[in-house]
Design a protein around this nucleic acid. Structure first.
Lengths: 181, 181
DNA sequence: CGTTCCATGTAAAACGTTACATGATTCT
DNA sequence: AGAATCATGTAACGTTTTACATGGAACG
């Protein structure tokens, strides 16, 4: 096992919720998870294979109709998952293209940068609309055991997006001021 | 040129500020930039080579003492940089291990998750202290032409970290409540 | 009967970090 | 003299996406 191997544990974590196929897993990474975690087929299928090879999951060809393989987590798999969960998370290392462009900015390019902020504001407003829709959707699942956890992650999405939007608006105003000088 | 090739433009952007060596560039990516953008030697030197090959920069072996190569941006380089700057930024796609663990969480694992939040709070508080030190440092450069841009990026760092810290504290409180039930 | 979605998988390319090799210069 | 830092570079490894190949099932 390599350094962090997060793809491995992300897939394993989904299997903790119940048996899934590679396709199901991909759909999940493309759903509510997408805002903070995603994996492509190119990762998922090999991980699934490794999981079985190492005894952390077992496969079962679904007997009903479709050519579908269901993966089930084993007790060994649950154990390594729990070990990973308890380990401290390593700090996020994101790359932010907008921040980079702003940092590199100069007075000559101020209009371009204001424009980037404008676009970002639009994108963030749209994102907030999506989150709000997700929020309403999530309310249908109030009774689900995972509800508090899902609510937390969605809440973070909303909060951080609002913060960024606020910052973008402030920044735009400041740069417009600067431009006037 | 591939899909986004951001490493390429990140290096080029630094050359816009004045001639640099690969080593200088690395230092910059390890300085205030590090919180939202970083590149390792393994990227920087090859990019520099490509830049020269494609006519976007030229090299000059520094004649004074040290075995140092200075890279200067060419007018062609400035042109492609400005083209990139004006292009819309593509949305950030970060992976957040803490969010993943929370999303996958269940009531059985609630103590582990509370613990993760506690650790995250500590880390964020430390980060804020660093940002505050950076803030004081930055005040020394009020007159620098780039000051407003640097201030904006640092401001974002502080705001987003505070938001996350706030969220972590809230989340911890909620989970502790839940645990009590 | 054609389109869409379900479903599995891999190869190639792109992206990125880490570790190492090498040697000069500066500082103590 | 020895340690730290300056400085360049690459090879190996690891990670991740994209694009493709393949075919069955459901739907209109």
């Amino acid at each position: 096992m390599s350094r962090t191997n997060n793809s491995f544990f992300a897939v394993l974590g989904l299997l903790m919720k119940g048996p899934s196929s590679g396709y199901d897993i991909r759909k999940q990474f493309n759903g509510s998870l997408r805002y903070f975690w995603s994996e492509s087929y190119g990762q998922i299928y090999p991980v699934l294979k490794d999981l079985v090879r190492d005894g952390y999951a077992r496969v079962e060809e679904a007997n009903n109709s479709r050519q579908k393989k269901l993966y089930w987590i084993t007790p060994e798999g649950e154990a390594v998952y729990r070990r990973w969960l308890a380990e401290p998370t390593n700090p996020i290392q994101y790359r932010d293209e907008l921040l980079l462009k702003v940092y590199l900015g100069s007075r000559q390019e101020i209009n371009e940068i204001i424009n980037l902020f404008r676009q970002e504001c639009n994108a963030l407003e749209q994102q907030l609309a999506v989150y709000n829709a997700n929020q309403r959707e999530l309310e249908q699942h109030r009774e689900h055991a995972s509800y508090p956890f899902w609510q937390l992650t969605l809440g973070y999405g909303i909060m951080s997006t609002e913060t960024r939007l606020h910052w973008c608006r402030e920044a735009m105003a400041q740069l417009q001021n600067l431009e006037g000088v």
